[in-house]
């Protein structure tokens, strides 16, 4: 399975500035992709396009070679395959308890209560949340909120997971735990696309890197090649 951005151009409503200018890239199942670039380079916008929240004004998004349509049914299918974990976990936890919050995605996909329950327990186990299921979401620590947000998306069993600066601000222990979850996901065949400012991590962890600059793909390819040279910040 592949997710392809073909010459994608995006402008936010009410703005003249192009947030993405002709981005082309292809991500395959099981890949570990590091998405790097300055603040405002278009990384988060690319994630919104991948999930169908933003529709390109020019260019197209292809899922497994087929152009994505933006009707209700196609969007539901796209969101079943492509999950996004946003930068601020507080903005994506809606429900009163962890258990209920994780169940939101599977029920939105139309799964039965029994199936949704199984998905919730599976995602909670993967993210080490077994003990926290009854806890109210507002009473969690920052690292726990990140893992709950991640579990909420994983319960939808996506084939592509976009994580927007997921490990920023986490302590080294929590960071290792989250990276371990991402590794297990990747090993299970899910493509993980991690937007990060940690270039060292991008070189070590990823098997593919996309460097974005001013809404364009500046370079992409093997991390050791792409993330080296005098333009690199480190």
């Amino acid at each position: 399975m592949t997710l392809t951005f073909r010459n994608v151009h995006v402008t936010y409503p009410g703005s003249d500035r192009l947030a993405l200018r002709g981005v082309s890239a292809e991500i395959a199942a099981g890949q570990r992709v590091a998405l790097v670039g300055r603040n405002g380079s278009g990384k988060s916008t690319l994630m919104l396009v991948a999930n169908g929240i933003l529709r390109p004004q020019q260019g197209e998004l292809l899922l497994d070679g087929r152009s994505v349509r933006y009707d209700r049914r196609s969007l539901a299918e796209l969101r079943r395959q492509v999950g996004v974990v946003f930068q601020n976990p507080d903005d994506q936890l809606f429900s009163a308890s962890v258990y209920q919050d994780i169940s939101l995605g599977p029920l939105n996909l139309g799964l039965s209560q029994a199936e949704a329950r199984a998905r919730v327990l599976q995602a909670a186990e993967l993210c080490g949340l077994g003990e926290l299921l009854e806890r109210p979401t507002h009473a969690l620590s920052g690292g726990e909120k990140v893992r709950v947000a991640l579990a909420g998306v994983l319960a939808m069993s996506p084939r592509f997971l976009f994580a927007d600066e997921l490990i920023n601000g986490l302590d080294p222990w929590m960071r290792r735990q989250v990276l371990h979850i991402l590794e297990r996901l990747s090993a299970s065949g899910c493509a993980v696309i991690l937007a990060t400012h940690d270039w060292g991590l991008a070189r070590e962890w990823a098997d593919y890197a996309i460097w974005m600059d001013a809404g364009r793909v500046f370079r992409q390819g093997k991390p050791q090649t792409v993330l080296s040279g005098p333009e690199c910040p480190d």
Binding site: I53, Q92, F94, S95, D101, L107, N108, Q113, R117, M156
Partner: peptide, 13 residues
């Protein structure tokens, strides 16, 4: 909510 395939109601278990 949109990213989690929201259908218009917040259904939870």
């Amino acid at each position: 909510l949109q990213a989690r395939a929201w259908t218009g109601s917040l259904r939870v278990l």
